[in-house]
Amino acid sequence: MGMRSLLLALGALALLALVPFFPQVVYPVFAMRVMCLALFACAFNILLGHTGILSFGHAAFFGSAAYFCGYMLKELGLSPEIGIVTGVAAASLLGAIFGALATRRSGIYLAMITLALSQLVYFLFLRLPWTHAEDGMQQIPRGVLLGILDLDDDVTLYFVVLVLTLAGLALVHRIVNSPFGEVLRAIREHEPRAISLGYPVARYKILAFTLSAGLSGLAGSLKVIVYQVASLRDVHWSMSGDVILMTLLGGMNSVFGPVIGAALISSLYHYFDALGGWVTIMVGAIFIACVLTFRRGIVGELEAALATRRSTTSANDEKDGTNATN
């Protein structure tokens, strides 16, 4: 299993590295969008899948990072590394605030609180003078990363986004598989027991919020550098809905399942763009289908199918074995 998944990962990586050289097959900007959203969904899943917390306000983190990163690049003319760090810092701070407020309640109340708080953030960005309200920030310069990597070069940009996305995903993997991640799953499975074991559960939840928000902020900052636009769509509740759907569709009980959800939903938006309002209807229908029929998501259902096949074969083996001894 370990060897096979390593090979799979290397194969996927090789394919991803080829993308910028064959723009006629996969449009590189689209591939970069998928990477940003995949990171966003995996960061979101630290809360949903691993802590059992549904946040309905993650667009606030993604969008704030986009706006603040854009502000550093465009209004202050600073370099992209400063823009990214600012975006991540702003999103993390916001995540800590959201976490501190929302974790005072749980379940659906928590979801409603995060949604309301993100609407507050939406109205702030609508009103701030430098965000240009409905027009959004446009023509944000990409700049030169660390003084050597010119991001206006398409191939350089692509590999920078690829490396930073992979670094972000590696961090998600590290968080989820750390002792900290074990405590988060303990909270998800049985919160009163985690409390009685002496874990400061409230602090763990707020930290999970902060980390998830910070990584969502990395995704938002990368998105602004790729598209050179920060708009109200990035902080809108529909963005929070999209990231929930990506995670649900891909499978929230795996680390990288949301990547598949992100790729599918972005493809839907990308390839069916001409259908206009029908895309929203399709997204809603997928949402309903996910909740009603496969709550484990694509990866979860595949794993379950593999597991039952394996258990039936091993059960058959056992039966053969007992038959033989008889």
Partner: peptide, 24 residues
């Protein structure tokens, strides 16, 4: 009988379908 979270998500999906339908 499932976690109430699923009710919120299901009705959110319905919002997208209904609003999208009227927009189309």
């Amino acid at each position: 009988g499932l976690d109430p979270i699923y009710g919120l998500l299901l009705t959110f999906g319905m919002v997208l379908v209904i609003e999208g339908g009227f927009r189309v």
